[in-house]
Design a binder for these strands. Structure first.
Length: 876
RNA sequence: GCGGACGUGGCGAAACUGGUAGACGCAAGGGACUUAAAAUCCCUCGGCCGCAAGGCUGUACGGGUUCGAGUCCCGUCGUCCGCACCA
C-alpha cells in the first residue's frame, strides 16, 4: 500500500529522453501562438557548471515552461561564449590546443546542463568560436565599417612588455601586469573602435523606456554614459612667446557661472602645451613624467596628493582684459576628459580649493547660500558647492547660478577671440568609443588587409570567413597570429600585390553583443534573417548576473542599433525585460582562525547542532573547525558545492527547487545542506502523498468540491493556482514555492482520508482535481517529478505539453470574511461577516461585539472607521 | 568624494496601492510510532508578565504625519553595491 521512495535518478533520465524524442522544446518559427523569447546569459565554457549556473538556468526554465503552458510559442536557446583568454592560458599550461580544450569543455558542460532537465531548444546551439558564427560576425564588421560605425585611430593602451600584449584596465594591478608582474607601459597603438559614443544620447534617453529593467541597472548605465552640459571656452594666452606661439587654451566647464571666481588654469601632463613646454624645460619634462607614472596605478589615485607645476604662461580672463590668471600643469587633470584643461574656482570646488591653498592662490566666494550675508561670507577650508545666489561677480551679482550660467554662456558665445566665438555650449559624455582590438589568438580575426599601396582594405565578403589557423605556437609571448609563418601573408584584394592580414582579433564582448539575434536563425547564411529576427526580438525576459549591468548590456544595446542601421534587424532595444539574479553563497570553514587556517571544503565538514550551538568538525579526522563568513562560492576558499554531486544524490528537481526557494531571486541565496535536504523532503512528501492515494484517485474524475471539506479544499487549490501564476509572472519564485508548501499542507489530511478509503465521492473528486493542479503547478520547477506524478495519477500525455490549469474566479473570494477589529488602532478581536455586508450592517455588528461593548461602555464611539474588505477601527 | 539600495524572530524570509507583523521554509525543543534507528506524524517556537484567560511590548535608533506606520516624511547610526582626480 505504501509507495516506494521516489527515485529521481531513474525517473529524470527517462523523462529527459522522452522530451528529447518528442522534440517538444524545439521551437518552430511558424506558429499562430504569440511569441515569447526567454534567454539566460550564455555560459563561458570553463569546464564545469557551478551553482550560479544552476540558479540562473533554473529560473529561466521556470519562465520558459510556464509560458509554454500558458500557450506561448517559446524560444529558449542555449550556446557558448567560447572565445577568450582562459583557453589560451590552458593551452600554455597543459599543451592542448585552445580549440580542443574549449570544445571538450562544451561537451562536458552540455552533458551537465542536460542532466538538469532544462526545456532548451538544443537544435539552435552554437559556440561563438564556431567558424560559422565568427564568419557572420566578420560580415557584420564589414557592414559596420562600410556604414562608418567602425574606425581606426591611435590610442594609448596598457602594454605588458613581458607578455607583449595589451592589457585591459582590470588586468593592471598596482601598475603591473596581472600575469607577468612587469611594470606596465603606456603605448600608442593603432586600434579599431566602435563609434558607440555617437549613440550616447539615444542610449541614455532610451533607458527611460526600459521599464522592465531593474532601476539599479538603468541608473548604472546612466552614470556610465555620464552626460554633462557645459561650456567649451578659449582663454587667450597673454604671453604667446612663452607658449611657443600658441594663442589660446580651450577649457571645458560645467560651471561658467563661477567664472569670476577663477584663480588658475590647469592642464594635463599630456596636454599638447605641456608637451611643448617639456621639450624646452627639463624640470617640466620631469614633472610630467612623474604624473604619468602615478597615473597607471588606480589604487594610488585615492591618496595621491594634488600637485601642480606653475608654468610661465598667463592667460587673459574672458570677461576682463586687465585680469590675468596663471597656468599650471596638474596631476589631477585628465587628458581624455573634456579638453584636458580646466579653470579652477577654489570657492566652489573642494579639489580646486585644496590646490589653491597649497599654492597660495586667491579664493573668492562667488556663490553663497541664499540666507547668508554677502559682506561677511568667506570660504575657509570647505568649498561651498550648493545652490544660492551670485556674489563678487560684477553684473552677475544677485542672480541664481542657473541664470548666471546662461548669461555667461550667451555672452561668450557672442564674443569673439581671433576669428571664432570665444565659447560654445557643449554636451559632454563620459562614454568612450569601444576599442575592440585584442592582440590575441583565441578570438574572431578582424577581417581587413593592410596594403602598402591601398592602405586598409576590407576582406571581400565572398572571401569570408577569415579562419584562425590551427597550427599556432602559444608558448612564445605575444600574439601567435603575428609570428605564424604564413597566415598573415595574403595578396591585396584591391591591387593583388603582396599585403598583410590584420593580426588583431576582436574583443570577446563583440561575440556576446549579438548572439541573442543569431539564435533566431542560427544556421542562416547571413548574420540574421531580418524578418525572423525582428519577429522574435526583443528578448522578452533576459536573466543573468549583475556583473554585466554595464558593459555587456550597453554593448548589446549599441550593437542592436548598429545592426538596425545596417539592415540586419528592425529594432533598437534587444532586451525588453531584464532580471539580475543574486549569487549563490556558502559558509566557509578553516582549520584555525585567521590567515594561518587552511580552507576546508563543505563536503569534508560535519556540522553538529545542539540547542542552537553549531560546531563544525572535519568529517574524517574529527578535528574541530572554525566556521567563517558566508561568501560567494570560490575555488580559493573551497566553499564550493558541485552541482553534479547534488544532482547525483538528490536529483535535479531538488537542486532546482532549492535554488528557487528561500531567498528572493535578486538577492544572494545561502547554500546549506539542511536547505537541500528540506527541498528533498518536500519532493518525497509530494510523491508519498500522491502515490499512496493514487490507487484511489487514478480512476477518479477530478471536480470542484460541492460542500464542506471538499469545497474548502477546492477553494485552496484554486487560490493557489492564481497565486502561483501571479508569482511566476513577477519572477517571485520564493513566494510561489511558499504557496506550493501551503497547498501540500492543506492537501495532506484529505489525501490521507482518500488513501484510507474514508473519503466520499465529493472529496475524492476535489482531491483528484487539487492533486492534478498541484502537479501542474510544480512542473516548471520540478518537471521530472511532475511528469512521474502525472502518470501516477492516471493522466494522459505529458505535463510538458499540458496547459496551465485555470482557476474558477468564483472560488477565489469567500462568502464570509473575517475583519480584524481594532480599538484605538490596536487589534482586539475579529468580526466574521458576509462579504457583501453594507457599512450599516458592519457597524451594527461591530458595536454589538462583547469586547467593543466593554471598551465603549455602551456609549457611541467617537469615530468608526470601516475599510471595506480590510479592517474596522473603533476610536473612543 | 558622488550616486544608489537596504536594515523585520536563532536563521532564510512574507506582509498587494498605509489596514491582523512574522505566511512558508530551516534550525531547535517536546511528544507519538518503533526492540532500536532512520523515515513519518502531532505539538511548541519574537520578548516580558501570568497556572490560565489574557495583558504589555516589539520591524536599526530618535522624532513627525495619521483613526491606524515595517510601509510615508525629517534626522541619526550601520551594512552592501556602483562610479570615482569627470572639470
Amino acid at each position: 500500500m505504501t509507495i516506494e521512495r521516489y527515485n529521481p535518478k531513474q525517473a529524470e533520465i527517462r523523462w529527459q529522453r522522452k522530451w528529447e524524442e518528442a522534440r517538444i522544446f524545439e521551437t518552430l518559427d511558424d506558429s499562430s501562438a504569440p511569441k515569447y523569447y526567454v534567454l539566460e546569459m550564455f555560459p563561458y565554457p570553463s569546464g564545469r557548471i557551478h551553482m550560479g549556473h544552476v540558479r540562473n538556468y533554473a529560473m529561466g526554465d521556470v519562465v520558459a515552461r510556464y509560458k509554454r503552458a500558458r500557450g506561448f510559442n517559446v524560444l529558449h536557446p542555449m550556446g557558448w561564449d567560447a572565445f577568450g583568454m582562459p583557453a589560451e592560458n590552458a593551452a600554455m599550461q597543459n599543451k592542448v590546443h585552445p580549440r580542443d580544450w574549449t570544445y571538450a569543455n562544451i561537451d562536458a558542460m552540455r552533458k551537465q546542463l542536460k542532466s538538469m532537465g532544462l526545456s532548451l531548444d538544443w537544435s539552435r546551439e552554437f559556440a561563438t568560436c564556431d567558424v560559422d558564427y565568427y564568419k557572420q560576425q566578420q560580415a557584420l564588421f564589414l557592414d559596420f565599417l562600410a556604414a562608418g560605425l567602425i574606425y581606426r585611430r591611435n590610442s594609448k593602451v596598457n602594454w605588458d612588455p613581458v607578455d607583449l600584449t595589451v592589457l585591459a584596465n582590470e588586468q593592471v594591478i598596482d601598475g603591473r601586469g596581472w600575469r607577468s608582474g612587469a611594470l606596465v607601459e603606456q603605448r600608442e597603438l593603432t586600434q579599431w573602435f566602435f563609434r558607440i559614443s555617437d549613440f550616447a544620447e539615444d542610449l541614455l534617453v532610451s533607458l527611460d523606456d526600459l521599464d522592465h529593467w531593474p532601476e539599479k541597472v538603468r541608473l548604472m548605465q546612466k552614470n556610465w554614459i555620464g552626460k554633462s552640459e557645459g561650456l567649451s571656452m578659449r582663454w587667450e594666452i597673454a604671453n604667446p612667446a612663452a607658449a611657443d606661439g600658441a594663442t589660446d587654451i580651450e577649457v571645458y566647464t560645467t560651471r561658467p557661472d563661477t567664472l569670476f571666481g577663477a584663480s588658475f588654469l590647469a592642464i594635463a601632463a599630456d596636454h599638447p602645451l605641456a608637451r611643448t613646454l617639456a621639450k624646452k624645460d627639463p624640470a617640466v619634462a620631469e614633472f610630467c613624467d612623474q604624473c604619468r607614472r602615478a597615473g597607471t596605478s588606480l589604487a594610488a589615485l585615492d591618496t595621491a596628493e594634488k600637485i601642480g607645476l606653475k608654468t610661465t604662461i598667463n592667460v587673459v580672463h574672458p570677461l576682463d582684459r586687465e585680469w590675468t590668471v596663471p597656468v599650471f600643469i596638474a596631476n589631477f587633470v585628465l587628458m581624455d576628459y573634456g579638453t584636458g584643461a580646466i579653470f579652477g574656482c577654489p570657492s566652489g570646488d573642494q579639489r580646486d580649493l585644496d590646490f589653491a591653498r597649497k599654492y597660495n592662490l586667491p579664493v573668492t566666494p562667488v556663490v553663497m547660500p541664499a540666507d547668508a550675508d554677502a559682506a561677511s561670507f568667506v570660504i575657509t577650508d570647505t568649498a561651498y558647492v550648493g545652490d544660492g545666489i551670485m556674489i563678487n561677480s560684477r553684473n552677475l551679482d544677485g542672480l541664481s547660478p542657473e541664470t548666471a550660467f546662461d548669461t555667461v554662456a550667451d555672452l561668450l558665445e557672442s564674443q569673439t577671440l581671433g576669428d571664432a566665438p570665444q565659447a560654445r555650449r557643449k554636451i559632454h559624455y563620459r562614454l568612450r568609443d569601444w576599442g575592440l582590438s585584442r592582440q590575441r589568438y583565441w578570438g574572431a580575426p578582424i577581417p581587413v588587409i593592410h596594403c602598402d599601396d591601398c592602405g586598409v582594405v576590407p576582406v571581400p565578403v565572398k572571401d569570408l570567413p577569415v579562419r584562425l589557423p590551427d597550427d599556432v605556437t602559444l608558448d612564445k609571448p605575444g600574439n601567435p597570429l603575428d609570428h605564424h609563418p604564413t597566415w598573415r601573408h595574403v595578396n591585396c584584394p584591391a591591387c593583388e600585390k603582396p599585403a598583410r592580414r590584420e593580426t588583431d582579433t576582436m574583443d570577446t564582448f563583440v561575440d556576446s553583443s549579438w548572439y541573442f539575434a543569431r539564435f533566431t536563425a542560427p544556421r542562416h547564411e547571413t548574420p540574421t534573417d531580418p524578418a525572423v529576427a525582428s519577429a522574435w526580438l526583443p528578448v522578452d525576459q533576459y536573466i543573468g548576473g549583475i556583473e554585466h549591468a554595464i558593459l555587456h548590456l550597453l554593448y548589446s544595446r549599441f550593437f542592436t542599433r548598429a545592426m538596425q542601421q545596417t539592415g540586419h534587424i528592425d529594432l533598437k532595444e534587444p532586451f525588453r525585460g531584464l532580471f539580475t539574479q543574486g549569487m549563490v553563497v556558502h559558509e566557509t570553514y578553516r582549520t584555525e582562525k585567521g590567515s594561518k587556517g587552511e580552507w576546508i571544503a563543505p563536503a569534508e565538514v560535519m556540522i553538529e547542532d545542539t540547542d542552537g550551538l553549531r560546531q563544525a568538525r572535519h568529517a574524517t579526522t574529527g578535528e574541530p573547525l572554525v566556521i567563517g563568513s558566508i561568501e560567494k562560492m570560490s575555488k580559493s576558499k573551497k566553499n564550493v558545492v558541485d552541482p553534479d554531486d547534488i544532482i547525483d544524490s538528490y536529483g535535479a528537481d531538488t537542486a532546482r527547487f532549492f535554488m528557487l526557494s528561500d531567498s528572493p531571486p535578486d538577492r544572494d541565496v545561502i547554500w546549506t545542506e539542511a536547505g537541500v535536504e528540506g527541498a528533498h523532503r518536500f519532493v518525497q512528501r509530494i510523491w508519498r502523498l500522491l502515490g499512496d492515494a493514487a490507487g484511489q484517485l487514478s480512476g477518479t474524475e477530478g471536480g470542484t468540491g460541492e460542500g464542506g471539506r471538499a469545497l474548502a479544499l477546492s477553494r485552496s487549490a484554486h487560490k493557489t493556482v492564481k497565486a502561483v501564476g501571479e508569482d511566476i509572472e513577477k519572477l517571485a519564485f520564493n513566494k510561489a514555492v511558499a504557496r506550493l508548501y501551503e497547498l501540500v499542507n492543506t492537501l495532506a489530511a484529505p489525501l490521507a482520508d482518500v488513501t484510507a478509503g474514508k473519503a466520499d465521492a465529493d472529496l475524492k473528486a476535489a482531491c483528484k482535481q487539487a492533486a492534478d493542479m498541484l502537479v501542474l503547478l510544480i512542473a516548471p520547477m520540478m518537471p521530472h517529478l511532475a511528469e512521474e506524478s502525472w502518470k501516477l495519477l492516471g493522466n494522459d500525455g505529458m505535463v510538458a505539453t499540458t496547459p496551465w490549469p485555470a482557476y474558477d474566479p468564483g472560488l477565489i473570494t469567500d462568502e464570509q470574511i473575517t475583519l480584524p477589529v481594532q480599538i484605538n488602532g490596536k487589534k482586539r478581536g475579529d468580526l466574521t461577516i458576509d462579504r457583501n455586508a453594507d457599512q450599516a450592517a458592519i457597524e451594527t455588528a461591530v458595536l454589538g461585539l462583547d469586547f467593543v461593548q466593554t471598551a465603549t461602555g455602551g456609549n457611541p464611539p467617537r469615530k468608526l472607521i470601516i475599510v471595506p474588505q480590510r479592517i474596522v477601527n473603533v476610536v473612543i
